[in-house]
Design a protein around this nucleic acid. Sequence first.
DNA 1: TTTTTAAGTGAATAAATATTCATTTATTTT
DNA 2: AAAATAAATGAATATTTATTCACTTAAAAA
Lengths: 193, 193
Amino acid sequence: MARLKNDIQNINHIFEASRNVVIKVGFNGLKMADVAKESNLATGTLYLYFKNKEDLINQTYLSTKKNIAEILLFDKNENLSFEQAFKKMWLAYFHFCKQFPAKILFVEQFLYSGFLDEKILEEAENFFEPLNNFLKFGIDNHLLKNIDYTILKAQLTGAIHEIIKINIKQKKELTEKEIDICFEMAWQATKLN
Amino acid sequence: MARLKNDIQNINHIFEASRNVVIKVGFNGLKMADVAKESNLATGTLYLYFKNKEDLINQTYLSTKKNIAEILLFDKNENLSFEQAFKKMWLAYFHFCKQFPAKILFVEQFLYSGFLDEKILEEAENFFEPLNNFLKFGIDNHLLKNIDYTILKAQLTGAIHEIIKINIKQKKELTEKEIDICFEMAWQATKLN
DNA sequence: TTTTTAAGTGAATAAATATTCATTTATTTT
DNA sequence: AAAATAAATGAATATTTATTCACTTAAAAA
């Protein structure tokens, strides 16, 4: 079989496998043997890359959070109004969630899975500085409602996640019209009237 | 020890114990021995009331969903405007979530725990007919945005749940002012402009 | 091409935990 | 208050699943 160690491509395959297993059977149903199978590897091989199950799960989390944060890095050189930038970001996040629901569900469920390592959690939070600053800017400049930005952020992401969950459960695609209304809801909720 | 069989009071204690364990260590960390301990019962005793672990968890879910649905049964005889009724319900749900975060977190996490029994899920959905009808009324009468009511419902409850999670994680109480802003966010998001 | 090193395997083992059941304790009936 | 019934117990057992390691296979170096 192909060389794997330090091969980022293949480690990402393991991460993807973990997420796929979680999305199918939940964190409780995550068995090392199943992750191995989904990765086309032997069970023992996983232990060459991860200290144990907890480590595998935490590393998957960290990697996935990084993926998500990258989506939210928007180009400050573009000359957009705050509302335009807000919409651009919202749509980028929305479509990312739609395209990679397993990533979103994994990180959401991880927080309450019982596998969480505080250190990893903190490390992941750092990826989101740019988003935090964007929201702070909006609040300070009276463009967004004046409320703790963690709440604002949670409302925005939480709303999108709920839609994605419905998407998955009901296997029903949202129409353009519906996506537009969803954005309107987010904007009406957060903007300062 | 006291007689327990068919004693609803005590079965509720077991449910509460399950939720407390889940909130502490997640579904993955839920061990029968720990639930028993938290209930002041022997492990074996749990099997007098529940067929197995899966059954215990599903019954806890069903009972908890019922609790939640009861909060949302509002008195139709009161002569409130739609917005007033909406606010009353929102606040009732918000305060319920604040008071019983374990109930909310349990049902949320349950959906992705890997223990879910479709039958039980459906049964629980029936409790929420009144809420569904309320939202449908709002949509049909052009008081709420015209979007699938499951999305509307998810947005409303999801937003509150996110706040509650922050409440727990940061151990920071929301001020009256903040709660008011949160309601405003929900109303601005859902009402038809 | 042979030797050496690195990677991968999966059956065997260890550890964790769900479930059972012989026994004890409490309650109800006579 | 003795006998009969019902409930509760928790150590022993069964089951599940994480982890290890002796061995195989592949890649790199000599």
